[in-house]
Computed example of a mutant assay.
Amino acid sequence: MAEQTMTITAADGVHARPATALVQVAGQYESDVNIEYKGKSVNMKSIMGVMSLGIPNGAEIKFTAEGSDEDQAVEALVQKTKEEGLGE
Score class of each variant (00 low, 15 high):
residue 1 M to P: 09
residue 1 M to A: 15
residue 2 A to V: 12
residue 3 E to I: 07
residue 3 E to F: 08
residue 3 E to H: 09
residue 3 E to L: 08
residue 4 Q to D: 11
residue 4 Q to R: 11
residue 4 Q to G: 11
residue 5 T to K: 11
residue 5 T to L: 09
residue 6 M to Y: 05
residue 7 T to R: 14
residue 8 I to Q: 02
residue 8 I to H: 00
residue 8 I to D: 00
residue 10 A to N: 14
residue 11 A to Y: 15
residue 12 D to C: 13
residue 12 D to P: 10
residue 12 D to W: 11
residue 13 G to T: 05
residue 14 V to S: 02
residue 14 V to R: 03
residue 16 A to G: 09
residue 17 R to T: 06
residue 18 P to M: 04
residue 19 A to Q: 03
residue 19 A to R: 04
residue 19 A to H: 04
residue 20 T to Y: 13
residue 20 T to K: 13
residue 23 V to W: 02
residue 23 V to T: 02
residue 24 Q to K: 11
residue 25 V to I: 08
residue 25 V to L: 06
residue 25 V to C: 05
residue 26 A to P: 00
residue 27 G to W: 07
residue 28 Q to C: 11
residue 30 E to I: 15
residue 31 S to T: 02
residue 31 S to E: 03
residue 31 S to N: 05
residue 31 S to D: 04
residue 32 D to E: 13
residue 32 D to G: 07
residue 32 D to R: 10
residue 32 D to N: 10
residue 34 N to P: 08
residue 34 N to V: 09
residue 35 I to E: 00
residue 36 E to V: 08
residue 37 Y to R: 04
residue 39 G to D: 03
residue 41 S to I: 14
residue 43 N to T: 09
residue 43 N to Y: 05
residue 44 M to R: 02
residue 45 K to F: 06
residue 45 K to M: 07
residue 46 S to R: 03
residue 46 S to K: 04
residue 47 I to R: 05
residue 49 G to H: 04
residue 49 G to I: 05
residue 50 V to Y: 01
residue 50 V to I: 08
residue 50 V to G: 01
residue 51 M to Y: 07
residue 51 M to T: 06
residue 54 G to Q: 04
residue 54 G to C: 05
residue 54 G to W: 02
residue 54 G to V: 07
residue 55 I to A: 02
residue 57 N to F: 15
residue 57 N to L: 12
residue 58 G to E: 03
residue 58 G to V: 04
residue 59 A to W: 04
residue 61 I to K: 02
residue 62 K to Y: 12
residue 62 K to P: 02
residue 62 K to H: 14
residue 63 F to V: 06
residue 63 F to D: 02
residue 64 T to S: 06
residue 64 T to F: 01
residue 65 A to Q: 02
residue 65 A to V: 00
residue 65 A to W: 01
residue 66 E to C: 12
residue 66 E to R: 15
residue 67 G to M: 06
residue 68 S to N: 15
residue 68 S to C: 14
residue 69 D to Y: 05
residue 72 Q to S: 15
residue 72 Q to F: 12
residue 72 Q to Y: 12
residue 73 A to T: 01
residue 74 V to G: 00
residue 76 A to C: 11
residue 77 L to E: 00
residue 78 V to M: 04
residue 78 V to R: 08
residue 78 V to W: 01
residue 79 Q to T: 15
residue 79 Q to R: 13
residue 79 Q to M: 10
residue 79 Q to P: 09
residue 80 K to C: 12
residue 83 E to Y: 09
residue 84 E to V: 10
residue 84 E to M: 12
residue 85 G to T: 09
residue 86 L to Y: 07
residue 86 L to P: 06
residue 87 G to V: 00
